[in-house]
């Protein structure tokens, strides 16, 4: 029934602390509940008509102040040691940049390879530096028991070390708007040589295109695909199939007008999304930081979606 058993070094560390504290708390809860129920039965009015007048007991009170204090300090300390482990990435870790935006993830490796899924080699530490292009997101990989908010204007870091191959969920945990629940991806842990092959192959592809990804690739990497389909189905935003040259009903400053989706229209729309709002869709498209080359490629790609 469990969705994700712990994996990776971080998973083991967190679970140890979790079960340590859980054991203490279950014991305390049991004790309190037992005493409560026992007293209510044992000293019920029928059986104990005459209450004893007890105002307090200084020694008892001192004990039940000191013992819980020690217990919580132990919990704090144990949590702290785990935290220290989770916060210190080894120096030789594989470095991956994570770019979050409404509502998709992009992973960028050191040699420029970009991917919408996080592929990592098994047994190697991976260090993520997380940035956001719009609002706060949260990078959460439950199987690894790790989580870090992705805050615009800051670079947060996170590391983990997978101990077995497999595919693991990544969720967004900081509420980020309409498609928050769909801002999911995968961590794919693969054997080391497989990973090396993959990253080299993709690296060569990039060299071949001189670091200029094509429109289709940009469409995925920049997250357009999170809201726009290319096959005619409307999603959060309208489909882009057959957009070029079409007449669109749009709102400009709240007034409904008809415009022709020419190249200028598409360019403006990508750079400053809410200048126009297509009728029937929410005005929520985030602006994109694109180079002129990337924009040209992307517009070409959209023009060709027939």
């Amino acid at each position: 029934m469990f969705v994700s058993w712990a994996t990776g070094l971080s998973g083991e560390v967190v679970d140890q602390v979790f079960f340590f504290i859980l054991a203490i708390t279950v014991f305390l809860l049991g004790l309190i509940t037992f005493l409560m129920v026992y007293f209510v039965i044992r000293y019920r009015k029928k059986r104990n008509p005459q209450p004893s007048d007890i105002h307090g007991n200084i020694w008892l009170e001192i004990i039940w102040t000191i013992v819980p204090t020690l217990l919580v300090l132990a919990m704090f300390y144990y949590g702290l040691t785990g935290f220290n482990f989770l916060k210190k990435a080894p120096g030789d870790a594989l470095k991956v940049k994570v770019i979050a935006r409404q509502w998709s993830w992009l992973f960028e490796y050191e040699n420029g390879v970009k991917s919408t899924e996080l592929k990592v080699p098994v047994g190697k530490p991976v260090k993520l530096s997380l940035t956001s292009q719009d609002v706060i997101h949260g990078f959460y990989a439950p199987a690894f028991r790790i989580k870090q908010d992705v805050v615009p204007g800051m670079t947060n870091t996170l590391w983990f070390q997978p101990t077995g191959v497999g595919t693991f969920d990544v969720f967004c945990t900081q509420y980020c708007g309409l498609q928050h629940a769909n801002m999911v991806t995968k961590i794919v842990v693969i054997p080391v040589d497989e990973f090396d092959q993959w990253i080299q192959k993709r690296g060569k592809e990039i060299e071949a295109t001189k670091g200029k990804p094509g429109g289709a690739q940009l469409f995925h990497e920049k997250g357009c695909v999170a809201c726009h389909s290319v096959d005619g189905t409307p999603r959060v935003g309208p489909t882009l199939k057959g957009l070029f040259g079409k007449e669109e009903r749009v709102l400009i400053d709240g007034k409904e007008q008809t415009v022709i989706a020419d190249e200028a229209f598409i360019r403006t729309y990508i750079l400053k999304p809410n200048t126009y709002v297509v009728v029937g869709y929410p005005p929520i498209m985030p602006p994109q930081a694109l180079t002129e080359d990337e924009l040209t490629e992307l517009v070409h790609y959209i023009k060709d979606l027939k």
């Binding site: 602390v17 979790f18 504290i21 919990m75 704090f76 702290l80 785990g82 935290f83 989580k147 945990t173």
Partner: peptide, 21 residues
């Protein structure tokens, strides 16, 4: 008590990384 004790669990720094949000 259940609320408070679960609070202790998620108050531990390491565990909070997992349980937060």
């Amino acid at each position: 008590s259940i609320g408070g004790l679960t609070g202790l669990i998620q108050g531990a720094l390491a565990v909070n990384m997992h349980l937060h949000d």
